[in-house]
Amino acid sequence: MKEKKVTIREVAELAGVSISSVSRYLADPKSIQPLAAYNIKNAINELQYEPNMFARNLKRGQTQIVGLIVPHMEYFFGKICHVVSDYFFERKYITYICESDSEREKELFYVQELLNQRAAGIIIAPSGQNTPYLQGVTKNYKNMIAIDRQEDIGCDMVLENHRDNAYHLISWLLKNKPCSRIMMLFGWSDSFNTRMCLAGANQALEEAGRDGSRVIKIFTARKIEVVMDALKQLNSVLEDGERPVIIGFGTDIVEYIAMGIHQLYPEWIGNVDIAGFAMGGTKEKLGMDCSLVVKNPETVAICAAELLSQKIMGEKEEKEPRKYDVKVKYEF
């Protein structure tokens, strides 16, 4: 004889709560008062209740899938992936992590497939190459959050203020370091974050009245060989007694600078100033004194995940898209 399946109503009756409370607990245990959550958990265990997740998802028109689209999974975005995945694991969601390489076709494919899979929500670091398409998506699909890039795709954005951080870093260096010659190494030339860092740096240089002829700006595409060539270029123009400042706008770029100095110009150690944007612990990892804007991927990830969770649960009232600025730490 086939065993009768336990229903959600029976769980609610045993726990002494409403059916909707049990349903909310199944979606997010932390959304329920601790005592009620304790009673629901005990009732589920006692009755050996197994929720029909497929039926629940059909009813809601979505799955227990969350999509996370990032350009790569190193440094900043690696930490983002870890934190977002853990956040939604605790809420019984599977996180699909998609690496776009900042390529238009890859990003487009991943967004379309996540929508086809009826993903409950999507967190995306937009490449800037699919803006009209993403704006069209967010007109109807509201469960999307953008991170790290201030690209207007019609949804909330969570990011660090790259322009302000670059401005404060360069301003401080100009006031506190010799800066007789400056080399700045940026990421991809068409990246939004590069444009913001460049704007902040230019503002600081202009306010200080610095001669642009003694400032070298390199767009590295985040490649070590480009950084090595840049260091050789700097060496070719250095004059006796000059103490240059080398600034890398990215953890990988700062690390490439340190590697290049050790390999090509070890005599520079202690005679150049290194600065830039990097992850926490970079200074200790390199064993070199650096002036750093320390990035904050954990807060970016948690803020984005919480916003998306609120949208999925219908707890966030739909308003005009908002930008959430995340604070960083200045180690200089």
Score class of each variant (00 low, 15 high):
Q233C: 13
P266D: 05
L264C: 04
D240R: 13
E225V: 10
L292I: 01
K223S: 07
K223C: 06
S191V: 08
I246T: 02
S236I: 10
A199P: 11
A230F: 08
K285E: 08
M259H: 03
G209H: 01
I312S: 00
N202E: 15
S189V: 13
L292D: 00
E242F: 05
Y324M: 04
T251I: 03
M259A: 08
T194P: 04
M228T: 08
A304S: 12
N193L: 14
I302S: 13
E207Q: 13
A275F: 02
F277K: 10
Y324H: 14
C290T: 02
L231V: 02
K283S: 06
V254D: 00
A230L: 12
E267Q: 12
I218D: 00
E298C: 12
I257H: 06
A301P: 01
Q263C: 03
I182T: 03
M184W: 02
D325Q: 14
Q233V: 13
K316T: 09
I216F: 10
N235Y: 10
I246Q: 00
H262Y: 11
I257D: 03
N235C: 10
T299P: 01
E239D: 11
R181A: 10
M184N: 05
F219L: 09
A301T: 02
M184A: 06
A204M: 09
M196W: 09
Y265Q: 06
P321E: 11
Q233P: 07
I218T: 02
D325C: 11
P244A: 06
A258R: 02
K283P: 00
L185V: 15
E267C: 05
W188E: 15
D211W: 04
M259G: 04
I247V: 07
A305P: 05
V326R: 03
F186E: 00
I253N: 00
E206S: 14
A275Y: 01
R243I: 09
K217H: 09
G250N: 06
M313F: 06
I182A: 03
R214S: 14
A278R: 07
H262N: 14
F249Y: 15
I269L: 03
A201N: 04
P266C: 04
E284Y: 09
Q203I: 05
K316S: 11
I224W: 05
N235P: 07
R195M: 15
V215F: 08
G250A: 08
D229A: 14
F277A: 07
V300W: 00
F219S: 10
T251A: 00
N202H: 15
Y324P: 02
L198K: 13
N193I: 14
E284C: 01
S189K: 15
C197F: 09
G280C: 10
E284W: 11
T299Y: 04
P297Y: 06
A278K: 08
S213A: 15
E255I: 13
S189G: 07
S191R: 07
S213H: 14
E267L: 05
L205Q: 03
M313A: 09
V300D: 02
